[in-house]
Write a protein that binds this DNA or RNA. Structure first.
Length: 695
DNA sequence: TTTTGAAGTCTCTCC
DNA sequence: GACTTCAAAA
């Protein structure tokens, strides 16, 4: 026995003080093999609910126990929420030092690295990030600059241009190939589009603007360009282990980044499930996960098949559904959970009845002791929950909505942000253009002239004040100059907060909003929300970055009334539900044309992706699952009309057999001559008859 | 040249 | 139902 205690380094003492994780007791064999895998590439093929997150969390714990410094572990996840959740869980296992693990999305991580290393590679540190809408707007400016804005020939609109461009960057397919596949009608414009893309790229660079794709692209280039070798090596040397969640939803560019990041140590762990690949629309390719063993020779592969989440009947239904799709890493999920009833397949007469069923059933389960938090209603697209939201509000049931249209994409919110962005980056042409055109008396032409004048003075922040506006815009110009000057002054004095900035912008903007948009109350409320969000952030730059890389998704993110309410029902798109689970899950609108969406019907691959998406939705459920289908769909779009809808094609005979069918009867028979107020007839025979002869 | 009203076009999923 | 585009008026 040494008479004096050995002076262990602080880290070792820390490690020793921690509780020891008992990997054998807390994980099954496959999970343990994955979690304790030593070094080198590892692919974990993890079916839904097989403890994928748990395994990753334990792997992080294991690495830390082994003595890897937490800040040298990089955990890449699909959403920031997922990263936070995993880090919180590993903190429970190994204590607070796991907080130092770097976790985040690819884009968020790219941003962090570019701010740190970009300057050395010629990328200014004060760039601003363009979201999708901004990028499209900039694309429109490029289109005009290339003289392709006029309508003499049918040229793709800005969103299409951006989509093609983005797809090209993310998939590395040649533009021509993308056009042939997705937009054959635009093939003749390939050369013109190339010109627009070239201008777009140059324009971005000249204005210190970076779009989502650039974040990834610059990261990849730092790692791959020979001239940037030294920087690439330093970035690669930041981490000893890289773990990637949801690998099936990464694209080739992301795969290249990963290769670059671990060209030294090859300590890469990826987790994914080819059956849950649902982001092909964004360039993700299932090839990444399928080819992983080839790209990283010597990779170990661990498959997790035991499901801990769902009851067997729910798995039976899910397995049957996915068995219709082509799948390469075949897995058949099983569970040791016994019992459980067959999932419900609910046929409702129409949307109101579907809504009523869902709400009633939720209240029933709630009575029986399931917290609202443990229930979710899922749907294919954000707008499909509108009726349900109205009903939940009317019945005072708190809910939180994930996915769908974010309020940051709302025009009025972007308007206000444009002011902040111009302050942050005076070269931000997109924002200048937007805010100038807001001003009464300033239209496209005046805006363009003003921007040219500013550009001519090398984007001097005061150049706009010296610009001479046409008479009708004089007042607007003066107002704008005044507000911008006030904002800049509070910058210089260093006493401004972002929330205060927004308040100041609103002294000018609120009136514009009232004049421009109808239904002003909800819009003004959005601005209040924006202000509240801003309050939680530090500098303006932080705020602008945070909202573009991690937008507040739900209306309760800021604590609007229901934050105190932690028992909140979740409404979510199927996409945003990925990685989550609930005791009870309702999938509404299982109508062919809605899920799958009609626009994917032409293409087998897209249909398969929709099928996998439905699989993702079904496998979120632990104990209760109900899929509902209203067969009278009131089409509000193309004229008032009822249509008898078909059930989703994914629910074929075999799949239906795994459900118990519930047919909701009409509760109150409407009297023919006097339909209930506010309700529309259940079926409009005349419309049906008309449709019959229309085609 | 800007504004305004009317007609026309899609509708998604997300960093 | 929201947003864009087009034509006519101010």
């Amino acid at each position: 026995m040494p008479s004096e205690p050995i002076a262990y380094p602080a880290r070792v003492r820390e490690v020793a003080a921690r509780r020891v994780v008992d990997f054998a007791a807390e994980l099954n064999d496959a999970q343990r093999a994955a979690a304790t895998h030593a070094d080198g590439p590892l692919l974990i093929v993890a079916g839904a609910g097989t403890g994928k997150t748990r395994t990753l969390v334990y792997r992080v714990a294991h690495l830390i126990e082994r003595g890897i410094r937490p800040e040298r572990i990089l955990l890449l996840t699909f959403t920031r929420r997922a990263a936070q959740e995993m880090l919180a869980r590993s903190e429970k296992l190994v204590g607070s030092e796991s907080r130092a693990v770097h976790g985040g999305t690819f884009h968020g991580t790219a941003h962090r690295l570019l701010r740190r290393f970009g300057a050395e590679a010629g990328l200014p540190g004060d760039f601003t990030i363009l979201d999708q809408g901004d990028a499209a707007d900039l694309m429109a400016l490029s289109r005009t600059a290339c003289g392709l804005g006029d309508k003499t020939k049918r040229f793709p609109k800005k969103e299409t241009l951006h989509h093609v461009y983005s797809r090209h960057v993310n998939t590395e397919f040649p533009v021509g190939a993308i056009l042939r596949e997705e937009y054959p009608r635009f093939i003749e414009h390939e050369e013109d589009m190339a010109r627009v893309f070239a201008d777009y790229t140059a324009r971005k660079q000249g204005r210190n603007l970076v779009d989502y794709d650039d974040l990834l692209l610059y990261w990849a280039m730092l790692l791959e360009t020979e001239a940037a070798r030294a920087i690439g090596d330093r970035i690669g040397a930041l981490y000893d282990h890289i773990l990637v969640d949801e690998y099936q939803d990464t694209n080739v560019l992301q795969a290249r980044i990963l290769k670059g990041m671990c060209r030294v140590h090859r300590n890469i762990t990826v987790v994914g499930d080819d059956a849950q690949s649902i982001y092909a629309f964004r360039g993700a390719t299932i090839r990444n996960i399928l080819d992983f063993p080839r790209e990283f020779p010597g990779a170990s592969v661990v498959t997790l098949e035991q499901n801990y989440r769902s009851t067997q009947p729910i798995l039976d239904a899910s397995n049957m559904l996915i068995s219709r799709a082509e799948e390469r890493f075949t897995k058949e999920l099983f569970t040791r959970r016994v019992g459980g009833e067959k999932p419900w397949l609910v046929t409702a007469q129409d949307e109101p009845q579907q809504t009523r069923f869902v709400v009633d059933r939720i209240l029933e389960l709630h009575e029986e002791g399931t917290p609202l938090r443990e229930m979710a209603v899922l749907f294919r697209a954000g707008y499909m929950s509108a009726d349900l939201e109205v009903e939940l509000t009317a019945r005072n049931i708190p809910f939180e909505k994930w996915g769908g249209l974010k309020f940051l994409e709302a025009a009025h919110v972007k308007d206000v942000l444009a002011f902040l962005r111009v302050l942050e980056n005076p070269r931000d042409e997109v924002s200048w253009y937007r805010l100038l055109q807001l001003m009464p008396g300033i239209g496209e032409t005046t805006a363009r002239r003003a921007i040219e004048a500013i550009a001519a003075e090398d984007w001097d922040p005061d150049a706009f004040a010296r610009f001479t506006p046409p008479p009708r815009a004089r007042e607007a110009h003066a107002n704008l100059v005044q507000v911008l000057a006030a904002l800049r002054r509070s910058d210089l004095e260093g006493n401004g907060s972002v929330a205060r900035d927004i308040a100041r912008v609103r002294t000018l903007y609120d009136d514009i909003l009232r004049a421009r948009y109808d239904r002003e109350e909800p819009r003004l409320a959005d601005l209040e929300r924006l202000q509240a969000i801003a309050d939680g952030h530090g500098t303006r730059a932080d705020f602008l970055t945070a909202i573009s890389l991690d937008p507040p998704a739900s209306s309760t993110d800021l604590g609007f009334g229901s934050e105190s309410e932690d028992d909140t029902l979740i409404l979510s798109t199927a996409h945003s539900a990925k990685g989550k689970e609930w005791d009870a899950v309702f999938l509404i609108w299982a109508v062919d044309g809605w899920f799958p969406m009609s626009r994917s019907l032409g293409d087998d691959e897209q249909i398969d992706e929709e099928r996998r998406l439905m699989y993702v939705a079904l496998t979120r459920a632990r104990d209760h699952l109900a899929v509902s289908f209203p067969f009278n769909v009131y089409e509000t779009r193309r004229g008032a009309n009822y249509s008898l809808s078909q059930m989703s094609r994914f629910l074929d005979r075999g799949v239906v057999r795994t459900f118990q069918q519930v047919v909701l009867e009409r509760t109150e028979a409407p009297s023919p001559e006097e339909p209930p107020t506010g309700a529309t007839p259940v079926v409009d025979l005349r419309a049906l008859l008309r449709n019959r002869f229309q085609g």
